[in-house]
Amino acid sequence: MAHIAKRSCSRVTVKNKPELARRCVFNRVPEVEACMTELRTQRFTPRVVQLDES
């Protein structure tokens, strides 16, 4: 049986700051976490969304 997995990119965004948005490949969780940590140290509230690119 085939295994279906969503392999879309993740996007890290900050409200009202489109210049801070970043895209990460689906399997690079440490990269997403590092980006979130970096933005939090700058006192932003980052949000992660998995894109639907199927």
Rank of each mutant, 00 (worst) to 15 (best):
M1T: 03
A2H: 00
A2T: 00
H3D: 01
I4D: 01
A5T: 05
A5S: 08
S8F: 10
S8A: 13
C9G: 02
S10R: 12
R11L: 11
R11W: 04
R11P: 01
V14D: 13
V14E: 08
V14H: 09
N16Y: 09
N16H: 11
N16P: 04
K17L: 10
K17G: 03
K17Y: 12
K17I: 10
K17W: 13
P18V: 10
P18H: 07
E19T: 09
L20T: 01
L20N: 05
L20H: 04
L20R: 14
R23C: 09
R23G: 12
C24W: 10
C24F: 14
V25T: 15
V25W: 08
V25F: 05
F26D: 10
F26W: 15
F26N: 07
N27S: 14
N27E: 15
N27A: 15
R28L: 03
R28E: 10
V29Q: 15
E31K: 09
V32F: 04
E33V: 01
E33S: 09
A34R: 11
M36V: 14
M36Q: 07
M36D: 02
E38F: 12
E38S: 12
L39P: 13
R40G: 06
R40L: 07
R40I: 01
T41A: 06
T41M: 13
T41H: 12
Q42V: 03
Q42K: 15
Q42Y: 03
Q42M: 11
R43G: 05
F44P: 00
F44H: 15
F44Q: 06
F44N: 08
F44C: 07
P46N: 01
P46H: 00
R47Q: 11
R47Y: 07
R47C: 13
R47W: 09
V48K: 01
Q50D: 04
L51M: 10
L51V: 14
L51P: 06
D52Y: 05
D52N: 12
D52A: 08
S54P: 13
S54F: 09
